[in-house]
Nucleic acid binder design. Structure first.
Lengths: 145, 145
DNA sequence: CGGTATCCATCCTGATACTG
DNA sequence: CAGTATCAGGATGGATACCG
């Protein structure tokens, strides 16, 4: 009917963000830089001690996409600061929208997930206690990161 | 200064969406179902022939999270329809916000990326033609899905 | 039609250790 | 301090083939 085979841009599926922004750390880095520049080690604190390798690759990709600027002050010990660009700052409102959705709907999603999991895998003790109770559950559902 | 070590919820980093929603296909499935229920095979068309295995696991996870409902009509040949729930529909406005950001800023992001890549890796012919031109570029930048 | 079953290629992330 | 180098593990996405 109205499902167009070319409905989605192959470069940017669903008109969504280039995937980098949807990765594990980018949004968090943007939030960490919201109130001003931060240093490499400062960023690692709220990011639950993400390893330097991962933080480096995240920051490099963000720099490449014009979301942050890296400033190195020639000194010993080294001093490097990361700051949001205007483009990076523009993500703040979008991230706020995501957080608003989570605040409003995440509990419902989590409840649905829990109900689904419990229906598919009833407590063994209870299931065993009710001999003829039909289960009708579907197979293993597991997924979920 | 104000970077709180517990700034981010470990269950839902950055207050962002549970990761499933950020996966490769979920947002697209939501958009495909915007105007009414669709059948399994119908969904594969705009999704660029995603393999049945991947579409199945995406839909199962969405069902688990209460984003879609699956309805099977007992008939031959089989007839199964997927429809958005209220929760799934609530994602439409969020996805619209994402698309709006892309429309407004993606060109800028892509331009920054291209400029960065060209600066790091100038055309060999041009570079070779200018003997003493300093390059100063940083190392290999590659990433980018 | 609407899936499953296998196998496979990455990709991403992380732990650990070392350096200018 | 701000990274880089190496190695390893797991999850994701996909190709291909088969089934009720």
């Amino acid at each position: 009917m109205d499902l167009d085979p070319e409905m989605f841009d192959p470069v940017c599926p669903s008109g969504a963000l280039p995937f980098q922004i949807g990765d594990k750390w980018t949004a968090m880095v943007v939030l960490c830089l919201e109130h001003g520049p931060r240093r490499f080690t400062e960023l690692r604190v709220p990011l639950r001690a993400v390893t330097p390798k991962v933080l480096t690759s995240t920051l490099r990709a963000m720099e490449r996409d014009g979301l942050v600027v890296r400033t190195a002050y020639p000194a010993h010990p080294p001093h490097v600061e990361y700051a949001l660009t205007g483009l990076g700052r523009s993500l703040l409102t979008l991230i706020a929208a995501v957080r608003a959705w989570s605040g409003a709907h995440l509990p419902e999603l989590l409840a649905a997930r829990q109900a689904h999991d419990e229906a598919a895998m009833p407590l063994p003790a209870v299931a065993a206690a009710q001999p003829a109770t039909r289960v009708s559950g579907s197979g293993p559902t597991g997924r979920g990161r």
